[in-house]
Design a protein around this nucleic acid. Structure first.
Lengths: 238, 238
DNA sequence: AAGCTGTCAAGAGCACTGCTCTCGTTTCAT
DNA sequence: ATGAAACGAGAGCAGTGCTCTTGACAGCTT
């Protein structure tokens, strides 16, 4: 993080020790973040856990924010990876099936890494401003979804109703997305796609933040039902 | 908060001063929370703003968490109030119209009080655990929504498809909600209601957390479109 | 009117945070 | 072998929530 690697072929003992320690710091930070939340991540606590003094950690990590950023990129990259894996695994299936697989993959990741989820989709940590580098994995995740939709449209799985009138400014936004994703998805379908996409994260937010407590006892079954409905919405002309 | 009021009819000068200062503390805290986020709320900063020393604030507020709780209840009560107001204002309209009005009211509140939104629906503040008292306004908000749905079912605005098979555990959960809300809403409709409800908060979360930046330039138009779609989903049998 | 009681603002202090700087030491490359 | 770079440790600054003590004052009772 702080310094440049030497260009020697064989990594020196120091370099290896450095890589090792950097990894340990990230691991400890990840553990703490998972346990006490991202906002409570403390460099001093990380240092304590590793049996070193706080200032020593700064040899490996420039700042708390930089560490946070690294964790975001790693953690969220994992989400994008999981999504892409589910994508390729069900690539031959219909659009509805693929969407459900994708949604379940994202949920599994979110349940396993709630802190990462909050870091990207939740309220931002007070002093922390997520740098541009963090949007790359988010974009990858979104594009995975858009690809499912585009394929569904191409294969005819997703009905393309043209009735719904799309307001002018939204049409402009949608046109840009089409261009960016290089996918020919009609405004109506794009709007349905946004609907199920935001619904997914709304449902995850509710589940992760305990909003379902005392209301829904079986979140798994509930989520599955919800996502089946959303798949139907995505596929069927409204 | 800390001490008991005297039982005298006319409030003494001291009691009035106390009430006044308590209000000022809450106001200042609310301002700070709106500006820097809930997690960054600092009692010392509040004290500074009011020109007093930090320890003096503890005469009026037991702890930072208690202050946070008070702000949640107040702020979220406002949301429930706004929702109920929109409810009574459009009580004679159809279910779709009422739902759209309710959604817009909730969005308006969320945009005006993003910190409160995060405090209730976002990632919890590190050390803070929301006490039970805070769920009362949340429940009020949910019940307002359920009433709209129940009325829509009763009036025939909301189609009651019975085809969709609901898993056993979810059926049990739904039955309890029916009983709790004293509303006769079929499983299928209830499931649709959950869908649009979570979609609403997913959309708000995306908008409030900047997830739409560079993607959607006109959030107002976009939200309106989304909520029209969700109204259609709520009303139409899937 | 005097005195007692409880409330008040203020300050010092504890343990914690992120972060910087300095100081010797160790390691590596030349 | 020597000089530079990297390193761990420690002190220190400014900030946080919160507690305890102190001295001043208001309001009620006698």
């Amino acid at each position: 993080m702080t310094t440049e690697e030497t260009t020697s072929r064989v990594p020196t003992a120091r370099a290896r020790a450095r890589a090792e320690l950097t990894r340990e710091i990230k691991d400890a930070a990840r553990r703490q973040m998972a346990e006490h939340g991202a906002a409570a991540l403390s460099l001093r606590a990380v240092a304590r856990e590793l049996g070193m003094v706080s200032s020593a950690v700064y040899r490996y990590v420039a700042s708390r924010d930089e560490l946070l950023t690294a964790l975001i990129i790693d953690g969220f990259g994992a989400a994008a990876d999981a999504a892409e894996a589910s994508e390729t695994a069900s690539a031959r299936a219909g659009a509805a099936t693929r969407w459900m697989a994708l949604a379940h993959a994202i949920r599994a990741w979110a349940l396993a890494n709630p802190a990462d989820f909050d870091l990207v989709f939740g309220s931002p940590v007070p002093g922390y401003q997520a740098p541009v580098a963090t949007i790359e994995p988010v974009e990858r995740l979104s594009l995975t979804f858009i690809r499912v939709v585009a394929d569904g449209v191409a294969s005819g799985d997703i009905a393309t109703d043209s009735i719904t009138s799309i307001p002018r400014p939204v049409h402009t936004d949608f046109a840009r997305i089409r261009e960016l994703a290089r996918a020919d998805i009609s405004d109506a379908v794009l709007s349905r796609a946004f609907l199920v996409w935001t619904q997914l994260f709304g449902a995850l937010s509710f589940e992760l933040h305990g909003q379902l407590h005392g209301v829904i006892d079986d979140p798994d079954a509930f989520f599955d039902l919800q996502i089946r409905r959303s798949a139907h919405i995505l596929v069927t002309a409204g």
